[in-house]
Structures are given as structure tokens and as C-alpha cells.
Computed example of a mutant assay.
Amino acid sequence: MSPAPEGRGPVDRRTEPSVLSLRGARQVFSTPRGDVPAVAGVDLDVRPGQVLCLVGESGCGKTTTARMAAGLAEPTGGEVLYRGTALRALGKQERAGFRRAVQYIHQDPYASLNPVRTVHSTLTAGLRRHGLAKGRDQARRAAIDLLERVDLTPAEDHLDKYPHQLSGGQRQRVAVARALAMDPEVIIADESTSMLDVSIRVSLLNTLGALRDDLGVGFCFITHDLAVAKYFAWDGEIAVMYLGKVVEQGPTPDVVNDPRHPYTRALVSAVCEPDPDLARTKERVRLRSADIPDLTDLPSGCDFHPRCPLYEQGRCDTERPPLVETGGRRLLACHVVDGPG
């Protein structure tokens, strides 16, 4: 992949208390074909001003994990904690505080915005609901401030428009502004840039990055694109998910530049490299199989072993590797690669 962004380096925020945590979080869906373990025991932490990126193929459990973290889905096992307290133990007032503190940005801005509400109505609904704005004038001023904060200017030109009158990038900025209206501590962004053109995507990522730096908002950022994860979460961490489990986690520069798990190496290998010289010398990882195992019939041992180029018979296919710390703030779940590369 291309060299790291200049002037930026990893910041260790792991000593700060977590705002949002998952501990052994599981989500199992019952289907006619059997139980589907969409998320199979995940431990994650989101801290103020930190970006935690969940990366993996479609269907690996990223969105289900995000929905549990946001309180939109009840885990079938484990816990989701807000400032150290399990969501199920929160009282009515504390639950309302959690709802304001943790905001969700969906992938499709057109589907997530009410088509019969104007931008003004969308942005002020939460303010009125939680008593954060008194009167129409104050609510309108707050809406203008929110639009300016996400670089949707002139704000007055957009307040009375409906979603169908906006471009995809403008709609997503309205969705970001709606999340900011609650003065959140954590924003969960679920593939929030995947439907946008590349130039608009970079602009929105820059806006989100400024909000992270200026307001100290923590991000749980979900993407299947490691290039996007590298750009937005360079100072944060990446957790790589495969079939409902985290198989590698660590500081973004380390995971991107020195991937250890064979699956992470395959993801990095699949990223398009714009530099011709780097593209010619880039390592190409060839998987043993392109087929992803069925969640209702998972293989024995390591879930990745049917596709893994480093597969060792009698080891990888008999015991599931635990996620363990290997030094340097890196977590890894692999029998074959168990230390620094």
C-alpha cells in the first residue's frame, strides 16, 4: 500500500477509560437451516477521540457488531457496556443518556433519512425530543450551526430541502449533522462512505476526522476497504473480522504495513495500489479457496483454514486458535503465525 500519511503517527489512547465496550458479545440468529453465529464473542473498546475500524468481507459480522454496540440489537451472549455499566442495567434516565451519547450513521443516506421531512425537520427532531432547543428560532439556529459544522454551506440554502433534492454526499452530510445534534461521545459509522464517489468520500472523511479531533468524538468505523481504514484510522486501531470473530487487532500502521494473520495479508494484497512501482513489487496472497464457509456448517479448528495458504494439517484443522496478545499492542488468532513478523 502507499506510504503512510505525512505528519501523523499512532497515538496511544488505550490508557483512557472506554466510553463504549463489548465483552464477549455474541449474536446468534435462528434460521430454518440452523443457528447462525453472526458474532461469536467479540471484545472491543471505543475511547474518546479514538477511531476503531472494523474491517472484513461482507457477511463477517461487522454491522451486527455495530448494531449491538449501538443498542439496536440485544446480544444473545456477553455484554455491551456504556462507561463500564451494562446496557441492560441502565435505568430509564441513563438509557436516554446512552441514546444521546452513541449515534449511528447508516450506509445508505437516502434510506436513513425520512423522505417527507425537510433537512430542518430532520436535524431539529432530536433537539426537540430531548429538550435541547427551546423554540423555533433556537432550533433553526442550531440546525444552521450543524450544517456549517459538516461543511454544507450556505446552510440556509439547504434547510428547507427534502432528501431527494440533495446529492448523495449532501445527504450523508445531513446524516452526520443529525448525529452531531445530540452532542455524541461516540459515532458508529457503518460503511458511511461506501456509496459515495471517491472525491466526495475523501471530503467526508476529512470532515469526520476534523470532528474527531475538534470535538473528541470516538468512532467505531466500519468498512470493507482497507485503504479507507488506513486513511481515516491512521492514529487509531484496526480490528479485522472473519466469520464473526476478530482474528487480528492492533494500531493501524502496524496492521496495514505488517499484517500477520494470513487473512489480513490477503485483504492488504487485494487493495489496489496506485503507484506502478509498488504495484509491481507488492506481495500477492493466493488463497487455497475463494469460497467462504457456511456459518451454519463451520469447519473444525480455525475457521480460515480451508482458505489459508499457511494451513498445517493436524494443527489448523483440529483446534480453534484463541485471540492472544503477541506484543506491541497486537492481538492475533493464528496457530502458524504467533509472533512478530
Rank of each mutant, 00 (worst) to 15 (best):
H261P: 01
D213Y: 02
A66W: 05
S2Y: 01
A73P: 00
P251C: 06
V240R: 07
G327A: 07
E319T: 11
I105C: 06
P17L: 14
G77Y: 06
R128H: 12
D214M: 06
D151W: 14
D137E: 15
V336T: 14
V268L: 13
A179H: 08
V55C: 02
R141F: 02
I187N: 09
A270H: 14
H130L: 09
D275L: 04
R315F: 03
A4C: 05
V119G: 04
E6S: 14
F221E: 11
A270I: 14
E156Q: 12
R329I: 00
A69Y: 03
R100V: 00
R128I: 02
T318M: 06
A189V: 04
L204H: 10
V28W: 13
S167E: 12
R173A: 06
R13G: 13
L267N: 04
F221G: 04
L22I: 02
P293R: 11
R141G: 09
V51Y: 01
A125I: 11
R212Q: 15
L205V: 08
T223C: 08
P322T: 12
V202H: 14
S30L: 13
G97M: 09
R280Y: 00
H164V: 13
G209K: 15
Q170V: 07
G216E: 11
P262W: 01
T223Q: 08
G168K: 07
P109Y: 05
L54Q: 10
S18H: 05
N114D: 15
L22H: 01
Y263V: 13
L54H: 05
S289G: 10
R23N: 07
R47G: 12
V217I: 15
E191S: 04
A96I: 14
L123S: 08
R129S: 13
E94R: 11
P5N: 09
D137I: 12
L332A: 09
V39N: 02
H130E: 10
A266H: 08
K245W: 01
G97W: 12
P251Q: 05
P262G: 09
R8K: 14
A143W: 13
Y104P: 02
P3Y: 03
L87M: 06
T64W: 00
D213F: 00
D277E: 14
T63K: 00
D303N: 10
V46A: 06
G250R: 04
A69L: 07
R83V: 10
E148C: 10
V285S: 06
A38L: 05
R280S: 14
R136C: 03
R83S: 11
P276F: 01
L54F: 04
C60Q: 04
R171T: 05
V337W: 12
D297M: 03
T76K: 04
G131Y: 10
R330N: 02
A227G: 15
T252Y: 02
L44G: 00
L215D: 12
R178L: 01
D137Y: 13
C334K: 05
D35H: 11
T31I: 12
P253E: 03
D291E: 15
V247A: 04
A177E: 09
A69F: 03
P322K: 11
H335Y: 10
A89D: 15
T65W: 03
L205T: 05
L180E: 08
L127H: 07
Q27M: 14
Y263L: 10
D213P: 07
G168Y: 07
V255W: 06
T318L: 14
E283G: 06
A210V: 02
